[in-house]
């Protein structure tokens, strides 16, 4: 069964994954143009793209632990997931910039003065070099440094989770659950894997 999954994942051409990743964004904007996203389409687009970006980033963080703890081999998906996640973050940011805040002086003021915007902006900037170097040529060119640079994904996703927590009004559970899940997935990188395997076997 798992072999079938592994084999079919390997069989998917990369371009299919990139196209599939772009469709929801285009679809969201098509709905926005048709005024089919409720009373505040700008808010709906921002929210959805932010949430989907977070889901993709979390999915990307799951791939290596799954590979280590289970026979699932999804590593092929990691790059497309990461690149598509960055695309969502970028469109999320541009939507905020162009359609929401609109006023250039206020954009700068918001990035500096509003901590949740600053944190989101920092996450975007940390992801930028990763998106740019997500290709075989960069891996060859950068050698061992590539792995080091791509560890930036850990602080970036933590900041993305924090960005969500900082926007919640009142005491809300959902953003905290996201942040806790992200913190756990990042922390796993420094946990001895043997303890996890044992836990799996014992059960």
């Amino acid at each position: 069964m798992i072999d079938v999954v592994n084999r079919s994942v390997r069989a998917i051409p990369n371009w299919v994954l990139y196209v599939a990743g772009a469709v929801p964004v285009i679809w969201l904007y098509v709905l926005g143009f048709q005024n089919a996203l409720g009373a505040d389409p700008v808010d709906a687009i921002e929210r959805n793209l932010g949430l989907w970006a977070l889901w993709l980033l979390i999915a990307g963080l799951c791939i290596t632990p799954l590979q280590r703890l289970t026979p699932l081999r999804l590593i092929k998906l990691r790059r497309p997931i990461g690149v598509v996640a960055f695309f969502y973050v970028l469109v999320h940011f541009l939507t905020w910039l162009v359609l929401d805040v609109q006023i250039p002086s206020q954009i700068v003021a918001d990035i500096i003065k509003r901590p949740y915007v600053t944190v989101g902006m920092a996450a975007l900037l940390l992801l930028l070099p990763l998106a740019v170097t997500s290709n075989n040529w960069s891996i060859r060119k950068m050698g061992a440094r590539w792995r080091t640079v791509h560890k930036l994904v850990y602080p970036a996703v933590l900041l993305a989770g924090l960005h969500m927590v900082m926007q919640a009004k009142g005491f809300q559970l959902e953003p905290l659950v996201y942040l806790a899940a992200i913190a756990f997935l990042v922390a796993m990188r420094w946990m001895p894997l043997s303890s996890f395997r044992q836990a799996f076997v014992k059960r």
């Binding site: 505040d40 389409p41 700008v42 918001d110 509003r114």
Partner: peptide, 13 residues
């Protein structure tokens, strides 16, 4: 967030 301006709901995208 700044309170200097507002977005009127209902004006579309």
């Amino acid at each position: 967030w700044s309170q200097a301006t507002e977005r009127r709901i209902g004006g579309g995208l």
